[in-house]
Design a protein around this nucleic acid. Structure first.
Lengths: 117, 117
DNA sequence: TTCTCATTTCAATGATATTTGAATTATTGA
DNA sequence: TCAATAATTCAAATATCATTGAAATGAGAA
């Protein structure tokens, strides 16, 4: 994961219809949801759904597979894991003494000073 | 964290200058970086930096505090934690038997079927 | 092949975001 | 108070993104 890919992925999620699509796919799990069902559930036109889901697919957060006449979309969970790691890496300059890491849900590096300097 | 707040936060991160600002602040830790230093490090004008960092602050991902003539910015680590939780919640419909959760870095709910249905 | 269904692509339009430089506000030192 | 420094706000210009409806593609059934 690099800065460019992270911006593509974050931008893919930073829009109402796409975030709804992503969360529904996250809940649906590996079996996924068809394009038509997604359009209906999210309440956008089929062409608009295609536009949005294509962006999610380009970002790598979502994959497509054709099943007869339908295209089923499902989440690529490792892509999300890589994004989360990228966003939080080198926290506090990677100093493990003051920062146990965010993804591990450890405490942040002490309180933010209110009146220093 | 709700859908609207998540879109604001994701949108705040989904831009080159803002993502660079955020990652530098994440590395800097609690002491933060002044607006002027951020503008220089990221290579944008002061007015452009103000515009971007204001969006990060509105999203809650970053906080500002004035120190004499400077304004220091630093990350709000709990806001990021809440965002990560929101993005991955209800994975596989919350079924712990097939999905150990993403934030805990557990395995995803089995392989995505290639040719089912 | 021909018809239908599911989906995607395209061009045009409208809506949002970003950058720029000048003007403004806030803080401090002379 | 006046000048200097740091940061923000504003309006205008440019650039990027989202929606629409029509046309095109792809897969399967008649």
């Amino acid at each position: 994961m690099n800065e460019h890919d992270a911006i593509i992925a974050l931008g893919a999620l930073a829009q109402e219809s796409r975030l709804q699509v992503y969360r529904r796919l996250m809940q649906a799990g590996p079996s996924g949801i068809s394009a038509g069902d997604l359009a209906e559930q999210v309440g956008v036109s089929r062409s608009s759904l295609s536009f949005h889901v294509a962006q999610l697919e380009r970002s790598g957060l979502v994959r497509a597979r054709r099943q007869h006449r339908n295209v089923f979309y499902s989440v690529e969970i490792d892509a999300m894991r890589r994004l989360l790691t990228f966003l939080t890496q080198d926290c506090c300059n990677g100093n493990p003494d003051i920062c146990g890491g965010l993804t591990a849900n450890a405490a942040f590096c002490g309180a933010i000073p209110e009146t220093e300097q």
